[in-house]
Design a protein around this nucleic acid. Structure first.
Lengths: 238, 238
DNA sequence: GGTCTGGAGGTGGTCGGACCACTTGGGCGA
DNA sequence: TCGCCCAAGTGGTCCGACCACCTCCAGACC
C-alpha cells in the first residue's frame, strides 16, 4: 500500500523509527485511530509501514512512555483514553530529573498554577469535595508518620486541584508534586520544624475554601507554596 | 551468561525495557551520568545490564523522545543538557493530540502562565529585549502573509516569556503555543476578521511592557489569550 | 614541519528470524 | 448446560547480521 514516492516530497527526514512515530501520531490526530481503539499487531504495522518489527517496536515504546499508547502483553496495543493524566504523566519525569535552579523555577510555576486552581476551587467546590479536603486535613493532623502525612498532603492538594474543574491543570500539578519531588524537598524542610507552619497554612486554605472566598484562597495557596519555594531558593542559590 | 540475579533486591517489576529506563534515569539522578556526558555503547550497556541490545535500544529511544538522551549516528549517545526546553518539548505533543474540551483547558493554563510571565517581564525586561519585542510587533503589522505573521507572533510571545526570567515557564509556554496548535486555532479564528483586535492586543501588551507596568501587562496578556479562549470555547461547547 | 586526505574502526540504525510469556476464546468433556 | 483446558495469536526478548555515518589518525603531499 505504501509505495515509495520517487520525488523528493517525502524527504527521508530523520530515522525510520522517527517517521513511524509521526505516522502513528498522525493516525490519531486525523481520527483514523480513536481513543481506546486497538491497533494492528506489531507484525502487521511493520508490514504496513514497510519497516522491520524492531523499528516499529521502538516507535511503539516511545509512544507508550509518552502515555499515548498502551501495550497489553498477549492482547494487543491500544490507544489510551488520551486523558490529561495519561499525557502529562511525563511531567513528573521532568520534576524528577530537575535539580538546582530549575527546581525553584518548577516550584514557581506550581505556585502560580496552584494558587489559581485553589481560587477556582473556592468558587465551585462541592460539599462532598470540601468534606474530602477536611478529611485529609484531619488525617494529616492526627498522625506523626511522615509517610502518611505526605500521602494526605498530596491528596489534600489533589482534591482541590480537581475541584477547580480543569483536568489538565490538575494533571500538571500532579506531575509537579510527584512523590519523589515532594519527598526530596520535604526531607530537609521538615527538619527545620516547619510542621506547625504547614498546618497553619493548610488550615488557612481550608478556611478560604469553606468561606468560598477565591481571593483568600489564592493568597493562602500562594503563600503555602511560596514558603517552600523561598526555603528551596535559599538552599540552592547563595 | 547472566542467568543468576546478583541479589534478591532486583524485583522483576515490569518489563526488562522498563527496568532499563529506570536504571538510566537513576544513573542521571544520582549523578553518575552528567549532562552532556557520553554513555557507553549500546552493546556495552546491554552487556552491563544483562539484557539484549534490542531492549536497551527501546529504552534509549524512549528516553530520547523524552528529551533526556540524544543519539548521534556514528558518534554515540549523550545526555542532553537537561535544559527545560529539552525536557518540556514533549509538552508540544500533548497540545497536538488534545482536542475538544482539553484544548480549552490547555488554553486556560496558558492564559494563567502567560499573563504572569508578561507581568514578570514588565518588571525585568531589558532594553534589548524590548527592542526585539518592538521588532516583531512591527514586522507583524508590516505584512499580510499569514505564515510570517504567525512566526513573528510566536517570537513576540517567546521573547516576552524569556524576559520573565523563568526558563521553565518559557519552555512550557513554548509547548503550549506549538506551531500546529496555533495554526489550528488560528485557521478559523482569523477568518472572522479578528486581525485588528489581535493587533490592538499586541500593542497593549507592548505598551505595558514599555511602561514597566506589571499589572497592566498581566491584564493585557490575559485578555489576549482569553480572547482566543472564549472563541474556542464557543466552537467546542454548545 | 605542517597540512590535507584517505581509509579503517567504531558507533548507532535497521533488518529478519527465532523463541518465550501471556492473553484470549472456542471446543471438548463432564 | 457448564466448566475446564489447550491452541492460536499477541507482545516481550534475544540473537546475529549488515548498513550508514562519524571520528580519528596514519600516510602522502606540499
Amino acid at each position: 500500500m505504501e509505495d515509495i514516492p520517487r520525488d523528493g516530497t517525502a524527504a527521508p527526514k530523520g530515522t525510520v523509527t522517527q517517521r513511524a512515530i509521526e505516522r502513528i501520531k498522525a493516525m490519531i490526530t486525523d481520527g483514523s485511530l480513536e481513543p481506546g481503539q486497538r491497533l494492528p499487531t506489531e507484525r502487521d504495522l511493520a508490514a504496513e509501514l514497510g519497516i522491520s518489527r524492531s523499528s516499529i517496536r521502538e516507535a511503539i515504546r516511545a509512544l507508550t512512555v509518552l502515555g499515548v499508547l498502551e501495550a497489553r502483553h498477549g492482547s494487543g496495543i491500544y490507544v489510551t483514553a488520551l486523558n490529561a493524566g495519561d499525557l502529562l504523566e511525563t511531567f513528573g519525569v521532568v520534576a524528577d530529573l530537575s535539580r538546582g535552579p530549575r527546581l525553584v523555577e518548577l516550584l514557581q510555576v506550581r505556585r502560580i498554577l496552584e494558587s489559581t486552581a485553589t481560587a477556582l476551587a473556592a468558587a465551585r467546590i462541592t460539599p462532598e469535595e470540601l468534606a474530602a479536603v477536611e478529611g485529609h486535613l484531619a488525617a494529616m493532623n492526627a498522625t506523626d508518620d511522615p509517610e502518611e502525612i505526605l500521602a494526605h498532603d498530596l491528596e489534600f492538594h489533589r482534591v482541590i486541584a480537581r475541584a477547580a474543574g480543569n483536568e489538565t491543570m490538575a494533571a500538571i500539578l500532579e506531575g509537579l508534586s510527584s512523590r519523589t519531588f515532594r519527598a526530596r524537598v520535604r526531607r530537609g524542610y521538615q527538619e527545620e520544624g516547619a510542621f506547625a507552619r504547614t498546618r497553619r497554612e493548610h488550615a488557612a486554605i481550608h478556611r478560604a475554601l469553606a468561606a468560598r472566598d477565591p481571593e483568600a484562597a489564592r493568597s493562602a495557596a500562594a503563600a503555602h507554596v511560596g514558603e517552600v519555594e523561598e526555603w528551596l531558593r535559599g538552599q540552592v542559590g547563595p
